[in-house]
């Protein structure tokens, strides 16, 4: 699994659909000449760097992870890795454990009575179930946005400033600057800049959702968990959220649970298919949606069940 994942990532070319090595050197290097030997040397060292980059760039690793609600096992022996600044789409039928899984990363499940877990989840090498770990710190680092937008009954400005204020930030200029930056980052600044003191409830559903994303961004998280962030939105608001996700992955690592297969296909770099608490397939998104390795994944993505 790990190897496959690494290999597939290596093959990914960022700017072009064409494998760069197929383009004649004359075009590629604009006349620069390079002997085959040099080229080989260069290729293999580039490959090594890439490989090194990958192992150093793992944001999240999940190892032999099990999760129980009382006697019911909701997640079964999950193993996966998430590379920094990528988007992972999590798909699967209702009740397959995808939201439970997502909520593990910021320990949102801790509030539920009678839960139990085994195995490890590391974020930046930090074991998130470590007894000495401050959960508030973890949640600052791992932001979350839910299906139903849930702004506080406060002004637009206060909604975004809230996290900083409870974290003890007093400097008004700093707060104002961060609010502006977060709202811009969440692609909603232009729509709200003239009414920052109005109630957040005056915004449309799509705007409220982007406000919630801005609020999550204000505390400068590194990982964003999105639990069906667009399922209650109209197509235009949905496409704004999707564009936003595409922009945000430059700075954040994003995990998104979605029931909308087309959405998973559009926004994610990697897709994880869950069923009955198991991770059945985890691969590059284009692979999952053109040629999944397992029959059961194929049946799910083509709508034969679910």
């Amino acid at each position: 699994m790990t190897k496959l994942y690494m290999e597939s990532l290596k093959e990914k070319s960022p700017k072009s659909t064409i494998d760069q090595s197929t383009i004649p050197d004359a075009i590629q290097d604009r006349g620069k000449s390079m002997s085959d030997k040099d080229k080989q040397k260069k290729d293999s060292s580039a490959e090594n760097t890439k490989r090194k980059e990958l192992t150093e760039n793992l944001k999240i690793t999940v190892r032999n992870f099990n999760f129980y609600y009382g006697p019911m096992q909701a997640l079964k022996n999950i193993n996966m890795e998430v590379v920094t600044n990528t988007v992972v789409g999590i798909i699967g039928p209702s009740g397959c454990g995808k939201s439970t899984f997502l909520r593990c990363f910021n320990r949102m499940n801790d509030t539920i009575a009678d839960i139990r877990y085994e195995g490890d989840i590391h974020i930046d090498g930090q074991h998130i179930f470590d007894k000495n770990l401050d959960v508030v710190d973890l949640r600052r680092k791992v932001g979350m946005v839910f299906q139903k937008s849930n702004p506080f009954p406060k002004s637009i400005f206060e909604n975004v400033a809230y996290g900083m204020k409870i974290n003890g930030v007093k400097d008004k200029n700093k707060i104002a600057a961060t609010v502006e930056r977060s709202l811009k980052h969440a692609a909603i600044w232009d729509e709200v800049k003239d009414r920052l003191n109005k109630s957040a409830f005056a915004l449309s559903g799509g705007q409220q959702q982007r406000l919630c994303i801005a609020r999550a961004l204000a505390v400068e998280p590194q990982v964003l968990l999105l639990d069906e962030p667009a399922s209650a939105l109209d197509p235009i608001a949905t496409s704004k959220i999707e564009e936003l996700i595409h922009e945000l992955k430059k700075d954040y690592t994003i995990l998104i649970v979605t029931h909308n297969m087309q959405q998973a296909a559009r926004v994610s770099d990697y897709t994880a298919f869950f069923m009955l608490g198991e991770l059945y397939e985890y691969d590059q998104t284009n692979k999952i949606f053109t040629n999944p390795s397992r029959k059961i994944t194929e049946d799910y993505v083509t709508g034969r069940f679910g």
């Binding site: 297969m261 087309q262 296909a265 949606f289 053109t290 040629n291 999944p292 994944t297 194929e298 993505v301 083509t302």
Partner: peptide, 9 residues
């Protein structure tokens, strides 16, 4: 239908 996988192919 925005087909995927085998349907798309």
């Amino acid at each position: 239908f925005q087909p995927f996988a085998g349907d798309l192919r």
